[in-house]
Design a protein around this nucleic acid. Structure first.
Lengths: 303, 303
DNA sequence: CTCCTTATACTCTGGATGAGTACATCTGGA
DNA sequence: TCCAGATGTACTCATCCAGAGTATAAGGAG
């Protein structure tokens, strides 16, 4: 790094966005090329920060303001694309995760929204344990063979052998599947039934976004960036469930929302889709809440 | 992003590392140029991934294996450096956080280790609330003026007005200070007493690393990457305290470590620096532990 | 009017956490 | 020799919160 060990290189960099919205209780991601690619492109050089440039661009595309935008990861591995001629520059992509408010599913506009469970069908545990998990487990089983380390990893990541399912491990699950040859790669075609493939490493980038968002909603009130101005508590719950791929315990969910004082009643009632009309709520943002909600997990000595 | 809205640009990219070790209960970071800069340099283009290239480089520099290495953030804002001539390429730096085992403080070798609280003296709350906080609070107070939003932010970030101190907010604190003109910038000199300055935005990058590490040790057993092979529980506690800048409650700290079954006795005892000799422990890594230790905070409905 | 669905308010229980106390075992100096 | 000081280690106790379950209210459809 002192200029001796590392050789200088000029890198080609671009931005790549995982844009998420939740419509009809389904988490969706913005795609191009018939769902094959995430939106991406080279730098916008006018803006001061990448973030603000990206924000502008998204707003022009979706006609909704971006509620939340965060940097995900910078992808720069050598084997991201199909092998190119020697001497080609390493391709760098700076990935961003963005949240936009609920959208009416557009007709045939260029940017299309696809349900993210099309790409990761094994991640949706809302109704039941997905059936795909059995065939995945089969394949991973033979991949692991007698290697106990591999078996342990599989059991842990996919909730086998009595271990619990952990929704946050979406990225690590995908990476394991990739390693085991169950996902498309420059040298491998996609396998039927194991989720819709994408170009290059876009599916990995999407998995990164999903995992990040699933982890995030536990500490930060970012879900509200996906909600309309007013909503019922069940609607909010369904949105969280959509993202996490899990079912939640209704009374406890309400209690939590209540305790955290994140929302307030608008005074109006929902027109009611089935049963008793529900109160409508709105988000009550605070400077404090915007940042930290996680309880301290260190045994801190107060005083 | 479709090539229309965004203009192509060729970016100059390099790596920048926040390398942390804890020696003598003091968290230290590797620096160059007499503590003025973090180690950084252009890409190593031989390796498959950035990570592995960086890992090799660090090991050659510190002669210790890197226990843990994670991507921090990609810094690409326009005003990172002193204003350069128009048309200059935007500078991209991919920041990494790395942990290396305890080091004997080297003599006058090129890479020097500096205690990170030299740069952020207000972050060390182990002995007492640092005195600098008062002068910082003064300055921020006049910066906030009558703006209640600003006041709220200051109170929240710096634990004023009865609000608790939150050690995880190190980055946000620095950013607020920067915004308020209390930290060096291309157009501003450093202020005496408010921490040792660094080149460019290196101090911000260091703050990013500190914040990330402080958050991380709560969920992941990464502290052990900073420990020698065998250690006493108090030594472990002191290390966590050094990183978090807080004092912990001894009995509860031990209980936690115990319950999580992260360590096992070596059978040996410490030679004892003061009182009764302590049992020595070693880290007991497991595939499972390596990843998730956080309790689920969503009200998940089991079954 | 009855059933079904959704909304909303409780209760109960166990475990984790914050906090404090008691006692053991070493070193070093009066 | 014995005490003071420091550290190590094992408890107890109270509180809070999260998981789980139950009960009741209020709408619509037939």
């Amino acid at each position: 790094m002192t200029g001796v060990q590392l050789r200088a290189g000029l890198a080609n960099a671009d931005l790549i966005a995982v844009l998420v919205a939740v419509t009809d209780n389904e988490p969706r991601v913005m795609t191009l090329r018939a769902g094959e690619a995430l939106p991406s492109g080279p730098f916008e050089s006018q803006h001061r920060s990448l973030q603000s440039g990206l924000r502008d661009w998204i707003e022009s595309q979706t006609s909704h303001p971006v509620g939340y935008l965060e940097q995900l990861y910078t992808f720069a591995d050598r084997d991201r694309e199909a092998p190119s001629e020697a001497g080609a520059a390493r391709r760098i992509s700076i990935g961003y995760l963005g949240l936009v408010r609920e959208q009416v599913t557009p007709g045939t506009g260029q940017p299309q929204w696809h349900g993210w469970y099309e790409y990761f069908p094994w991640e949706d545990h809302r109704d039941r344990r997905p059936a795909v998990l059995d065939s995945i487990a089969d394949r991973l089983d033979s991949w692991a063979g007698a290697d106990s380390l591999r078996r342990e990893r599989v059991d842990f990541l996919f909730g086998q052998n009595g271990l619990p399912w952990n929704e946050d491990l979406a990225l690590q699950r995908y990476e394991l599947m990739y390693e085991a040859g169950l996902a498309e790669s420059p040298s491998r075609p996609a396998i039927e039934g194991f989720g819709r493939p994408m170009t290059g490493d876009h599916r990995r980038i999407l998995a990164t976004g999903i995992a990040r968002l699933r982890a995030k909603i536990k500490y930060h009130p970012v879900v509200f960036e996906l909600m309309p101005d007013s909503f019922t508590l069940l609607h909010l719950q369904r949105t969280v469930e959509a993202l996490s791929g899990l079912r939640l315990h209704k009374p406890n969910f309400r209690r939590q929302i209540d305790q955290q004082e994140l929302v307030e009643e608008t005074g109006e009632m929902s027109s009611g889709t089935g049963g008793r009309p529900a109160k409508l709520y709105r988000y009550r943002p605070t400077v404090l809440q915007a940042q930290a909600l996680a309880g301290p997990r260190l045994p801190v000595s107060r005083h």
